[in-house]
Nucleic acid binder design. Structure first.
Length: 512
RNA sequence: GGCGGGGUAGCUCAGUUGGUUAGAGCGCGGGACUCAUAAGCCCGAGGUCAGUGGUUCGAUCCCACUUCCCGCUACCA
């Protein structure tokens, strides 16, 4: 059985600093990476920055900087974000790196030598900010300025020699790929969009530019820069040391198990990328998941609306784990999600502080007062004990399936449900009234501690820091936690000491 | 215009391969308890499951039409 798992985020375009959308993609990917790791997989988790293109070149000029200096600065903010979000990524790739240039040029050479790329001429209305050409009827004129209808960005007439990729040739192969792999594109609704787009016919794709210089050169023609998307998508194999296909990283991890992306870049990942790979005779990734957007108050966040929720500010104000928990639990995964500070606060107070945090606290405090912080014997599990403990065993396969199907919400619901059940269990058993029945009291506490352990393990991919704090009660750390241990009802060893921990989540006053 | 997704409790969302009283969390009202971050537990209020018509013994779920929202895509001018 293949126990390797390769997951990627998009590489982010550093024309501006990171926003909530970047944070969301990264947190979601990290969630899956951590779960698979905990499931025993060798996980390779990649993120990075996509730094080429005219937009960056112009932004750099505007700031009086060399493109690379400009990129270094902004790429750093994305690298910092991986720390801020506590991502477990194994690598951070930048398209300005030599390893990536080699990889892109090699891929290009293969495509060219296979006759998949040809030189021709392109003329049309070009939008720098969209990095795309538009047809005459796709533009409109306002106040004497030509704009692309779709994006509203300014276009300029461009006529230049360009290399083309024979995308049209791959139409049927792509449809075959979608057909043979029902879940290649998820969620399903978006899969339909891609399929109908491909069915409607594909045109060859312009894959080089002459009008600017900031990018990877076409190996055989120094006047041309390779199209940013061909360049950018290749990062997924550059990081595995492509073109060295004998390299262990490449051999173990390609094709990728999951490209986690936002729905806005689905076409590039679900059409162009597999077409490039098919043309180069390389394996295609197993799955592309296009998640929804994070909206604020039903609208896309924008400066003018003043509804921006900056991920770094949120982390500074409320902490990382609350943000991670909130995004993973409250956003209906695959759909757009509305987020707000009020909801975030309510989520922190209800689920984290009152429910899970307080569960840990009440059990721990009880154990301290009555058992001197020693794990008690589990003399006999009665029906109530087994009922709740076995919940985890009985749902184990479901949980794994939920993860494999990217069904984040079902996974979260299971956790929440069991947090409630654990509190209810403690309530119903009333250990404070069992002081004359020590065996029963001990078994109740043992069971409660087991419940905290199991829930904490499931919470690890969601809120790694807090989960590890909770698991520290049992002297467990990142290296020795496994998902399957949630099936074990007698994992904890009686008489061992447990550690007191500080309050896990502080409540937040929402008076303002 | 075409294709697709969606409109379920005040809010955020589940769900139903059609079948007795439609679910969760938050919020709201009440109660009993005390181990705990005045947390937790119990009870309750609150929904014509967008509208109309149809199929069916029976539809929130299937079909048709209407309406609103969103996405992809086209075309006219």
């Amino acid at each position: 059985m293949n126990k390797n798992y390769y997951i990627t985020t998009p590489i982010y375009y550093p024309s501006a600093k990171p926003h909530m959308g970047h944070a969301y993609s990264s947190i979601v990917a990290d969630f899956f990476a951590r779960f698979k790791k905990m499931e025993g997989y060798n996980v390779f988790f990649l993120t990075g920055t996509d730094e080429h293109g005219q937009k960056i070149q112009r932004a750099a000029e505007k700031n009086n900087k060399k493109p690379l200096d400009f990129c270094n600065e902004i790429s750093k903010t994305f690298l910092d974000l991986t720390k801020t979000l506590n991502l477990s990524n194994n690598d951070f790739i930048r398209t300005t790196e030599k390893r990536h240039h080699n990889s892109v040029q090699k891929l290009w050479s293969i495509l060219e030598s296979k006759g998949e790329i040809y030189l021709s001429k392109y003329s049309g209305w070009y939008s720098v900010s969209d990095e795309a050409f538009y047809l005459e009827d796709e533009i409109e004129e306002k106040n004497g300025i030509k704009l692309a209808k779709q994006s509203g960005s300014q276009v300029e007439w461009l006529e230049e020699e360009s290399y083309f990729f024979k995308l049209s040739k791959w139409e049927n192969k792509l449809l075959e790929l979608y057909n043979n792999n029902e879940n290649f594109i998820l969620p399903k609704s978006r899969r339909n969009e891609v399929v109908s787009f491909v069915k409607s016919g594909l045109k060859d794709l312009s894959v080089s530019r002459k009008s600017f210089s900031w990018g990877v050169q076409v190996p055989t023609n120094k006047e041309h820069i390779i199209y940013v998307w061909l360049d950018a998508l290749t990062n997924y194999i550059s990081a595995l040391n492509y073109p060295n296909t004998d390299d262990n990283l490449y051999r173990n991890y390609w094709p990728a198990d999951l490209h986690m992306i936002g729905k806005d870049i689905l076409r590039f990942h679900a059409v162009y990328w597999p077409a490039f790979l098919l043309a180069a005779d390389l394996p295609t990734p197993k799955r592309v998941y296009g998640h929804g957007w994070i909206l604020s108050g039903d609208e896309k966040m924008s400066k003018s609306k003043g509804n921006i929720l900056d991920p770094i500010e949120i982390v500074n104000e409320y902490g990382l784990d609350p943000l991670r928990y909130y995004l993973l639990k409250e956003v209906s995964f695959g759909n757009d999600g509305n987020i707000s500070k009020d909801k975030l606060i309510s989520c922190i107070n209800s689920d984290l502080a009152n429910n899970f945090g307080n569960l840990c606290q009440r059990v721990l405090s009880f154990t301290e007062k009555n058992l001197s912080l020693k794990i008690p014997e589990n003399y006999y599990f009665n029906k109530d004990d087994l009922n709740i403990l076995n919940n985890f065993t009985n749902n184990y396969e479901n949980l794994i399936q939920n993860i494999n199907n990217q069904n984040i919400n079902a996974y979260m619901n299971f956790i929440v449900e069991n947090m409630f059940l654990a509190n209810k269990y403690f309530n119903d058993q009333e250990p404070w009234k069992k002081k004359n029945d020590i065996k029963r009291l001990h078994t109740i506490i043992y069971t409660s501690l087991e419940l905290i352990r199991k829930i904490s393990i499931l919470l690890y991919p969601v809120i790694p820091n807090s989960s590890l704090k909770a698991l520290h009660i049992f002297n467990l750390d990142e290296k020795n936690i496994n998902v399957d241990s949630i099936k074990d009802n007698e994992f904890l060893k009686p008489n061992l000491s447990i550690n007191k921990i500080k309050i896990l989540f502080n409540k937040i006053n929402n008076d303002d």
